[in-house]
Design a protein around this nucleic acid. Structure first.
Lengths: 204, 204
DNA sequence: ATAATTTCTTATCTTTTGTTAACAATTTAA
DNA sequence: TTAAATTGTTAACAAAAGATAAGAAATTAT
């Protein structure tokens, strides 16, 4: 099985990204890299679509994506990911069931990707299994921490507080993402975000 | 190191709970069980408190807990856990930093617990490490899926829809938990939940 | 460069939620 | 059993958000 070649620059960035969680030695990496492929999406192309099983987990080498759902015929954006983030319809990927949302490139975006089958092979490979399990655990734990924060903010903060916190946490998000997507992400309407920005004398 | 004894009934329930994710053989279990302790909290006792590092991960053998934060001097309940759930201030436990919230028993509650040190030892034990990493990954993935659902609901659904969905997902929650806690959990005030229940001819 | 599309703001009106307070109902404690 | 505390409901009013629409601003496409 000869996977589509991924270039060395992207591979290096991906290796560094994984090293945040688990460091792979050169000998391990020589094996591991054979399971990594490259994917490039143009603006508005989809990484995952509703109704289909999401077959890959991606790592953004450069670019960005948004997660959205369709409710009553309109798109509602729930999340964004940027460089060095992992991307997938996790539930779909993990449970092998059709996803309920979409993941779309906000601009031309380059991913290092691991197919479900390749991940299975890595998890069964005697020289990779242990570190891959560990890697998976640490990544999952990291995202749990992020999600915890996000849920707390819905429980504890008003939309206005959520907006102001976001400006501190992701100072450049308003520059990189259309405002009406950000509004959805905050759980409010675009009109409402516009009003909040007006009354908070929008810093940034 | 001789840990406080945990009784066999509770241990069996905990073993079944872990087996949802990874099955441990008898020989493995004989080692593993030495790292498990028992904890019993009376109603209103705390499993974790704000400002302190949460040193244990718990598994509810029987009973229930609520997660809450204090904002402007008042308690806001963000989550509940019941039998067969894992319980911890995850971020605190994982990152070894003081937690920002509280976990409190809603009734007398019995936990199988793993201290951070014991978990480290298990993760370093040659006969347990691999399966424990895998177990950790699968549990974390499971909670990611749950959290994804919850966040989606804040983005996509109105409070009323969120309430109705909850009735389907957790049909007995209104019986087990005070209503004003549930209101917080839904991201609204107790008064608002009372109104929603009135106008939806509260089923259940 | 111009037209078309998308995005953002503003205004009006409606609906919902938050706030506060009073009271009833229920649970807990003495 | 009675008293105290907690919990749930309802009402009145204020504040915020949703819905819709119109127009301005910015971006994208031709």
């Amino acid at each position: 099985m000869i996977p589509p070649q991924i270039n060395d620059t992207s591979l290096k960035i991906f290796r560094d990204g994984m090293a945040t969680y688990v460091v792979f030695e050169d000998t391990e990496w020589e094996i591991l890299k054979n399971y990594i492929e490259l994917k490039v999406l143009q603006k508005k192309d989809h990484f995952a679509v509703s109704g289909k099983i999401c077959d890959h987990i991606g790592f953004i080498v450069n670019g960005s994506v948004r997660y959205y759902h369709i409710k009553d015929g309109t798109e509602i954006t729930g999340y964004f990911s940027f460089e060095n983030d992992f991307v997938s319809s996790y539930k779909s990927y993990v449970t092998r069931t059709p996803g309920t949302g979409y993941i779309q490139a906000l601009e031309q975006t380059e991913f290092a990707i691991i197919s479900y089958n390749n991940l299975e092979q890595m998890l069964n490979h005697p020289l990779l299994a242990y570190k891959m399990e560990r890697f998976g655990r640490l990544v999952a734990e990291h995202y749990i921490c992020c999600y915890e924060e996000r849920i707390s903010s819905f429980i504890l903060d008003t939309p206005e507080e959520r907006y102001l916190k976001m400006l501190k946490t992701d100072p450049d998000i308003m520059q990189r993402v259309p405002q009406h997507y950000v509004a959805n992400y905050l759980g409010i309407t675009p009109v409402s975000l516009s009003r909040i920005r007006k009354r908070t004398v929008f810093q940034s």
